[in-house]
């Protein structure tokens, strides 16, 4: 696989096939923790960490255990257990080894288990079409796309919370409409790549 192909895969995962705006994965944290910039970045970093690790592990498990023994139907159960225990291990590891990092993204880690982006990404890469390198690039680039969008979105939300929004639309409804406008913009990156 050439460098060009890998770059195309990475850029389309970040921009065109954006994990939030085009695949709708991880909408809950996207709306839940995007009201402040600081927490959005913390969540985004935690998501990059977990998605990349869990997707590569899921791909490995699929390729070397599930597929050879024809147990593809067990994928959902195996992946969710991998993700739940991985998040637990990362949490304990960070608490012991890097307490400062734990302080900034520790509270987001338990939330990530039920982030559908993590299981969704594991499901996307755990197919024979991906290899170790492309599954890594795909999951890493997608989660970078998550960080990018949640960061832009949180900056917008900080502004719009002070704007003259009709009362029933304050909060989540206007945020969803704004996400729709962002999705329109990101869909237009199709022409770039």
């Amino acid at each position: 696989m050439t460098l060009g192909e890998i770059l195309t895969l990475a850029f389309s995962a970040v921009l065109v096939e954006n994990i939030i705006l085009s695949r709708f994965l991880g909408t809950c944290p996207f709306l839940g923790v995007s009201s402040k910039q600081e927490s959005a970045v913390g969540m985004g970093l935690a998501v990059i960490f977990v998605i990349t690790l869990s997707s590569v592990i899921s791909w490995t498990l699929f390729e070397f255990i599930l597929a050879p023994f024809a147990m593809g139907y067990m994928a959902t159960i195996v992946f969710i257990l991998v993700i739940a225990s991985l998040v637990q291990i990362i949490e304990m590891f960070l608490k012991k080894v890097v307490p400062s990092l734990y302080k900034s993204m520790g509270i987001y880690l338990p939330l990530i288990t039920t982030n559908c982006g993590v299981l969704g990404m594991a499901k996307i890469v755990a197919t024979p079409e991906y290899n170790l390198l492309t599954s890594f690039v795909m999951s890493f680039a997608s989660s970078v796309g998550f960080l990018l969008v949640i960061y832009i979105f949180s900056s917008l939300r900080e502004k719009i919370d002070n704007g003259p929004v009709p009362l029933p639309f304050k909060g989540v409804p206007i945020a969803l409409i704004m996400a729709g406008l962002m999705a329109m913009i990101f869909a237009k990156f199709v022409g770039v790549i």
Partner: peptide, 10 residues
């Protein structure tokens, strides 16, 4: 498209 989904749900 995804954009329409977000706006209608909002």
């Amino acid at each position: 498209t995804p954009a329409g989904a977000y706006i209608i749900l909002g």
